[in-house]
């Protein structure tokens, strides 16, 4: 059993993309303070496909949110691509997310009133791209996930697997530094889940995308290049009994 410090010690190479140092996150439940991540350290090399596993409430999603700039640590530092994101203002953090992070959600989180293509174009609205450039990027992203022919369909006209593909297309449309996937197969059957995992694997292997995936599914985690287990604020490379 190796703890997180061991995992971090092995990653002292200059191509470290994510560096989490002594991070803690405190949530308040009434008058009680709950420490979810007790001074956690983590380093993720560029181009890694990392699976984060652990029981419910272990802090997997919290860690993912901290790395993705969706939340701030109570203590410690979060550095992505050499930038301290925990120090950024809300406004700068939003801009940073738009530029550097692609998010894939368990329940896809597509806009029901927009077509697949328009959903993919959403994060591109935050870039200086022209309308035609946005369209080109969106069509390319849909092509990568194999849905170029369904670009005019609304989410309700797509299967769960197809919706998640649109979600992935939206996440990669801006060519982000990091792809953060929170239970991307959690709402899908095995076949559709496998297709999504194939896609994520291809994005990691062929396009060199750095992917952090939170999952409960051991089969999904097996597709990653590294799996870490989180329990009671401790990261290990072996599952805790």
């Amino acid at each position: 059993m190796a703890d997180e410090q061991v995992a971090g010690a092995q990653s002292d190479a200059p191509d470290i993309l994510v560096r989490v140092k002594a991070v803690d996150k405190v949530f308040k439940r009434g008058s009680e303070e709950v420490h979810v991540l007790g001074g956690l350290d983590l380093e993720i090399p560029r181009g890694e496909f990392l699976a984060l596993m652990g029981p419910s409430g272990s802090g997997k999603s919290t860690l993912l949110n901290l790395i993705g700039g969706l939340d701030r640590p109570t203590e410690g530092q979060v550095e992505v691509g050499g930038q301290r994101i925990d120090k950024l203002s809300n406004r700068k953090l939003a801009s940073w997310r738009a530029r550097h992070v692609g998010l894939v959600f368990q329940f896809y989180n597509l806009m029901p009133v927009l077509t697949a293509q328009k959903n993919v174009e959403l994060p591109l609205l935050l870039t200086p791209l022209s309308r035609s450039e946005r369209k080109t990027h969106a069509v390319n992203a849909l092509d990568i996930v194999g849905l170029a022919n369904r670009n005019k369909h609304y989410p309700r006209q797509l299967s769960g697997g197809e919706q998640q593909r649109v979600g992935i297309a939206r996440a990669i449309a801006t060519d982000p530094t990091l792809l953060l996937c929170d239970e991307p197969t959690g709402d899908l059957d095995r076949k559709a889940g496998d297709e999504i995992l194939d896609l994520l694997q291809a994005l990691n292997r062929e396009q060199g995308k750095t992917i952090i995936m939170v999952t409960h599914d051991i089969h999904a985690a097996a597709r990653a290049t590294r799996t870490l287990y989180l329990n009671k604020g401790q990261l290990t490379s072996e599952p805790i009994e």
Binding site: L70, R91, A94, R97, A98, N109, M111, L122, P123, L126
Partner: peptide, 14 residues
């Protein structure tokens, strides 16, 4: 709330 949270997660400002 899902759509608003998603938009903000994607980088849309408040």
């Amino acid at each position: 709330s899902r759509e608003i949270a998603t938009l903000r997660a994607l980088g849309f400002r408040s």
